[in-house]
Amino acid sequence: MSITHYDGLAVGDVVAERRVTLTRDSLVRYAGASGDFNPIHYRDDVATSVGLPGVLAHGMLTMGLAVQPVVDWVGDPAAVSDYQVRFTRPVPVDAAAGAEVFIVAKVGQLDAEAREARIDLTVSFDGATVLGKAQVRVRLA
């Protein structure tokens, strides 16, 4: 695999788009892999008892999956040097239907000297964005 080239990119270019369906299985898998066993991510009774609509996706799962279209576009996960998000809205995951998350990755800023790009993510669920200031800095070839 090779790293995507800096040349030819322009601010505003959409570099990746992806639709991902999360299920309760995805949440259990992420809980095990990350060690985050907060029951609001797998028990509706606990989630509703603290005022939530139901079981929510881990914010870190949403953050973790949202960067993957950028990783695939750039060609190497090691090319990501900086990644930040704000968690602005929860993603409830229905037991039967799951939750569909839509990711759009766009060039936000270019640094010709460093041959780096800032990729801005728009991550939405049910028509509303769930992450704020979601920015990925990548080193390009």
Binding site: M1, S26, Y30, A33, G64, D76
Partner: peptide, 25 residues
């Protein structure tokens, strides 16, 4: 652990999963 975490965040890059692909990179 890296493979388990990679699958959990729906990573599909072979560099996250395959030793040969990672070494080639």
């Amino acid at each position: 652990k890296v493979r388990e975490f990679s699958r959990a965040v729906l990573a599909t890059s072979p560099i996250n999963l395959d030793v040969e692909a990672a070494r080639a990179a």
